[in-house]
């Protein structure tokens, strides 16, 4: 069951999206989310959706992989949609007992669901097509001006990298401990919330102990490989904004910003 979590997973590839400078990708995701959150017109949504579809196609990320990542969020999306259907005042379409479904409600529900789906898809697209190390690196570089005001940027990026590296390992270990505790008669699936939370203790204690031991081992291993903080470090993979990067970046940002601005200004309303 834990194997379903694909958060932070990277599928190596050679597509344009994969090769795009991770800094450019981060900025793009930021622009995309901004456009998405300010979108207020069907046409804006359509353009954004097409843009996302294009990105997915070019990246050759399987839509099923995106869907899999979406599954844990399905409930929240559905819940939001349902709430919006019933609680948006407007022109009533159907009405029974105390519930009224308005046309505006349906519209908003669709937009809300679309917004959430695209929001999640876009973040998954980022992690699917960018190696976490590159991502942490890009974050570190984008934030590097902050190092001047003594923000520990390198340490933060390193922590992220290590966390990402160990997520699958720790998940595997969780599965193992769960099986071991089940074999000893532990019961994780029945009882009320309180009982189930309590049943997690024999899972969490060994997990934490194990994680700390790993941290210790890793620290020693890093020292053995001459790690001594961020000073004087170089990177094998240099980030260089190529012409293509700049083109994609400026083009996309202009498109997203433009579309969202036009929608805001009501140009499509005519």
């Amino acid at each position: 069951m834990l194997k379903d979590i694909t958060l932070g997973q990277y599928f190596p590839g050679t597509s344009l999206v994969h090769r795009l400078d991770p800094r450019a990708k981060l900025i793009l995701v930021f622009a995309f989310i901004t456009a998405l959150l300010t979108a207020n017109h069907a046409l804006t949504y359509l353009v954004i959706l097409l843009y996302l579809a294009l990105a997915v196609t070019v990246s050759r990320v399987r839509p099923s992989a995106l869907a899999r990542g979406m599954r844990p969020m399905a409930f929240i999306i559905l819940f939001t949609a349902v709430l919006n259907i019933f609680y948006t005042p407007g022109r009533p379409l159907v009405s029974f007992w105390i519930f009224t479904v308005s046309a505006e409600g349906v519209e908003r529900a669709v937009f809300m669901a679309l917004r959430l789906l695209m929001l999640i898809s876009c973040t998954f697209m980022l992690t699917y097509t960018t190696s976490p190390l590159a991502l942490a690196d890009a974050l570190g570089r984008l934030m590097s001006p902050l190092a001047k005001i003594r923000v520990p940027v390198h340490e933060f990026a390193m922590m992220m990298t290590i966390a990402l590296r160990f997520i699958p390992t720790i998940i595997e270990e969780t599965d193992k401990i769960m099986s071991a505790q089940k074999a000893r008669g532990a019961d994780f699936e029945t009882g009320n919330l309180f009982r189930r939370a309590k049943a997690l203790i024999p899972l969490l204690v060994p997990l934490f102990v194990g994680a700390f031991r790993r941290a210790d081992d890793l620290a020693v291993a890093m020292e053995c490989r001459c790690y001594h903080g961020g000073g004087g470090r170089t990177r094998m993979k240099q980030l260089r904004m190529t012409g293509v990067d700049a083109l994609v970046l400026t083009g996309s940002v202009a498109l997203l910003a433009g579309v969202s601005a036009l929608g805001r200004l009501g140009w499509f309303m005519r």
Binding site: Y10, P12, S131, P132, L133, T161, I162, L164, R165, T169, R213, R214, D217, L218, A221, M222, R225, C226, Y227, H228, G232, R233, T234, R235, M236, K237
Partner: peptide, 21 residues
């Protein structure tokens, strides 16, 4: 498992060299 730092093989191999500048 406890001595591999990076999430991609080649980046892990590069780790020491990056540290050495």
């Amino acid at each position: 498992d406890n001595q591999i730092v990076a999430t991609v093989v080649e980046e892990d191999v590069a780790f020491a060299l990056e540290n050495l500048g």
